[in-house]
């Protein structure tokens, strides 16, 4: 079983690296979102530093959605999904492994890039640290929630927009606690641990929910 998980994980990583740039594309999109923000808001460093964590979180949310619609659709289109379902690996585990591989290639690069992009928004070191840690804890939840949407829209040709409409409302709790954890790190009335632990809980819940709901949605696809 571990050999199967490894084979699937490595295949998805390899595909992400070969097709469409994978990791770099998401980070470049993230960078562009961060870069255009001061143009819209104006060069007020105090204001930018204050809303910086929220800007980084919204940009990360949008960058995570990028490419998520193809998570199962590419496998469905070329028939791989039928064959995957015939393997001994439960469909729930397949969904989980694909989520992890996708997060490694899109979510993790965003976390790594976040401190550098935070400097562009004039964030203090404390806030930089808070944003990075909260993104590390929160982006798995975004990927997992998105995977449910990807499984539901797997047979739709233009499912990307529908996926965003379905998933963005459910990502609001993650956004609230992610941003408040990031802001709590740079001083505030609440301790950092309070929103951060809730954020971790949301991620763990999504990690459990996504394989179950995703697998069920994929099974219903044929009917």
């Amino acid at each position: 079983m571990m050999a199967m998980i490894q084979a699937l994980f490595l295949r998805d990583i390899r595909l992400a690296r070969r097709v469409g740039g994978g990791a770099t594309l998401g980070v470049v999109f993230f960078l562009i979102l961060i870069t255009i923000m001061p143009f819209a808001i104006g060069p007020d460093l105090v204001l930018l530093a204050r809303i910086g964590p929220a800007v980084l979180w919204i940009a990360a949310l949008l960058a995570t959605l990028l490419g998520l619609d193809r998570l199962f659709q590419s496998d469905c289109d070329d028939g791989s999904l039928d064959a995957l379902r015939a393997s001994d690996l439960p469909l729930e585990v397949i969904v989980l492994v694909k989520c992890l591989a996708h997060w490694m290639m899109t979510g993790l690069p965003l976390v790594v890039a976040a401190p550098a992009f935070g400097v562009m928004l004039g964030l203090e070191p404390d806030a930089l640290w808070g944003v990075t840690v909260s993104l590390l804890a929160g982006t798995p939840a975004l990927t997992c929630l998105g995977a449910i949407g990807a499984a539901l829209t797997v047979s739709l040709r233009r499912g990307g927009l529908l996926l965003a409409i379905l998933i963005l409302p459910f990502s609001i709790p993650v956004l609230i606690f992610g941003v408040s954890a990031a802001e709590a790190a740079s001083g505030g009335t609440i301790p950092f641990a309070t929103p951060f632990l809730i954020l971790c809980a949301l991620s763990l819940m999504a990690l459990v929910l996504a394989p179950l709901a995703g697998a069920q949605a994929l099974r219903q696809m044929d009917e």
């Binding site: 199967m4 084979a7 295949r11 595909l15 097709v19 028939g79 039928d82 001994d88």
Partner: peptide, 29 residues
């Protein structure tokens, strides 16, 4: 069962050997 449908179940970005090695590992019994 081994089901081979209309669709080939192959990734066009991977080589023939990579595709087959993946399925060999995935469907190993």
């Amino acid at each position: 069962v081994h089901y081979l449908g209309h669709k080939d179940g192959l990734k066009s970005a991977l080589t023939a050997a990579e595709n087959l090695n993946f399925w060999a590992a995935m469907m190993a019994r």
